[in-house]
Write a protein that binds this DNA or RNA. Structure first.
Lengths: 202, 202
DNA sequence: TTCTTTACTAAACACTGTTCATTATTTTTG
DNA sequence: CAAAAATAATGAACAGTGTTTAGTAAAGAA
């Protein structure tokens, strides 16, 4: 089966080639600027060829969407060494918002855009699930240490996620400009500080 | 000048006619489904005509975006009679999320989409400003009553806005489905309850 | 060396937002 | 009232989009 194996390897290489181009253009010109034709052009193939490797545009961006979670998990990895669960939770909040600031396009793709969600209507959300799993387990650790007594884990996980997402989403989609004359970065910092403070008192 | 006055009235009527059609189609088929051609078709005009009354598509949706704020302010109006400022603040949070649940498309347009924001790069955000002004003044009232001592009003307003927006945005853009097997509505309720509880302890 | 399968492309389809020359209708003026 | 100027509306065109498909050239199996 050495021949069929090579074929499959080539197929995988081509998928990766497309994905690399898609990522590069997406980072440079955003989602709208990353059209099927510009992606194809970047790797000197015809647009139709992309459809031999991906069902549609959404599937390409679903792949980048998953990449985003891997990237975020990399940001989170060092926090495993923080012994105190509540300190770890606070650090996670910080890292989450930091990720959004440094990778606004990835953040958008992962948590705001509709596009990459459609193509997985009834499949499960692999990488996203893992990230959420980490949040839930750190919450459970906090509870074992006496924090958040009597709180439902899912409900609390959602509350915390929503808290940091709210900050990140208003930032990424430029709604912070509603505060005229106030520096967006300062506002995000204040939001983060306040939210963590509220979490401390909860 | 009775003739010029009539001309201007007709112009305003036509703008309203376009806006009504745009709103109807937007509510029915969403932003993507509300193309210039379908809007024009709905009022039996050619697509080019719309450009005699609106600079571009974004300007049409900026108008609907502003409508959304008027609608939200209507939701908020009854709360003016809540005497205690903190009770009023809590009720505002509830109404905000309620608005998002009942008008997800409007909410999307107002707080998530990029489209309606572009056309007002350097103008000010009239209706949005007013909504934010209400939030800030209720926070100041709370502070006058001893709540949130020593907190910066802008920073706190952003924190609270981000808190409720996070819940609404994850709901509207279907990220709640990350919690498999948990009812989205229940999750939103829990998020709201938790956040208000945290605000009480702040 | 045929035959068949695979890989790829160019062209087309049905859309999108937007512009513009042309036509039809009003309004103003001589 | 008729001619001229201004306004309103259109349909076609432009440059894009995602996607499908008929046709072609190369690679593998017989």
């Amino acid at each position: 089966m050495t021949i069929a194996a090579r074929k499959q390897r080539e197929k995988e290489e081509m998928r990766q080639l497309i994905l690399d181009a898609a990522r590069r253009i997406f980072m440079e010109k955003g989602f709208a600027g990353a059209s099927m034709r510009t992606i194809a052009e970047a790797i000197q193939y015809s647009a139709g060829t992309l459809y031999l490797y991906f069902k549609d545009k959404d599937e390409i961006f679903h792949a980048l969407h998953e990449e985003g979670f891997v990237k975020m998990l990399e940001y989170m990895a060092p926090l495993a060494h923080v012994a105190d669960p509540f300190e770890r939770l606070k650090a996670m909040g910080h890292v989450y918002i930091d990720f959004a600031r440094k990778n606004p396009d990835y953040y958008d793709l992962m948590f705001i855009m509709r596009a990459p969600m459609k193509c997985m209507e009834h499949e499960k959300w692999e990488e996203g699930d893992r990230t959420l799993g980490i949040l839930k387990s750190v919450i459970r650790e906090c509870q074992a240490a006496g924090r958040f007594p009597g709180k439902d884990v899912d409900g609390l996980a959602f509350t915390i996620w929503a808290g940091v997402h709210g900050i990140a989403a208003l930032y990424v989609r430029n709604r912070v400009q509603a505060f005229e004359g106030v520096d967006p970065e300062t506002l995000v910092d204040a939001g983060q500080r306040n939210f963590i403070e509220m979490l401390e008192r909860a």
